[in-house]
Design a protein around this nucleic acid. Sequence first.
DNA 1: AAAACATATGAACAACTATTCATATGTTTA
DNA 2: TAAACATATGAATAGTTGTTCATATGTTTT
Lengths: 123, 123
Amino acid sequence: MAYRMNDSEVEQCDFIHVHEDIVNQVQSVMPDEDQLLDLAEFFRVFGDSTRIKILYVLSQAEMCVCDIATLLQMGQSAISHQLRVLKQMRLVTYRRDGKTVFYSLADGHIQTILAQGMEHIEE
Amino acid sequence: MAYRMNDSEVEQCDFIHVHEDIVNQVQSVMPDEDQLLDLAEFFRVFGDSTRIKILYVLSQAEMCVCDIATLLQMGQSAISHQLRVLKQMRLVTYRRDGKTVFYSLADGHIQTILAQGMEHIEE
DNA sequence: AAAACATATGAACAACTATTCATATGTTTA
DNA sequence: TAAACATATGAATAGTTGTTCATATGTTTT
């Protein structure tokens, strides 16, 4: 998200009392800006209830668009739009069989992340 | 997000050709609606680049608000607002030491999830 | 007690997102 | 090849979100 600063300078904190040693040390191990943006974009996909539900049902079985729509009690179009997002971010894959398209989870990380999330909220 | 349906019925798919066996089987193991909403809400927190950066720097060291603002080259207020979100969702904790407040990651799941995400995007 | 410092918070706004509706594309069947 | 089926997609829009600005709260120092 791009928000404008009304000045070319960023304001941060008006002092020189930062903990310099820590800041410098962490500064040196920071990943690329791009990598962190990708990471946020990746997690953003998990951050919507419709998409989480889709991921969950696909973690149980391969499924077509209308199966998912039925399970989630939502319209076919809404599901299809979200599947596109999931596809683009490589969280799901699909195979075509005649008229119907079967979706499934892309790889093991997705399952692991879902499971870790579940554990966290159940605490 | 709540969007209105112009009818009381949900439209799903206009047919009876769903794969009933799969749908019924998955239906029976679906977690509560609430649990899936919580899960999405939890992941939503990871889905913003500012928050991901905060989580990343905190994975390296305990830090005060201004350290973070300096590292991320952002305003104090923006960081503070995001820390509140992270606090509310129990992704970070804090301790006060005089005027300054030191933040750190709440538990191990956060590290694991970050690491899994990194692995995924590096593929 | 006043000034300075560190952080938190409310309001406002621009940017973004998820759904719906209508329709297009692709596949099979009659 | 026309009709029916399954999925995909574009436009529109209501709801949501992240940042800024101004200011409040809490702590220390003088």
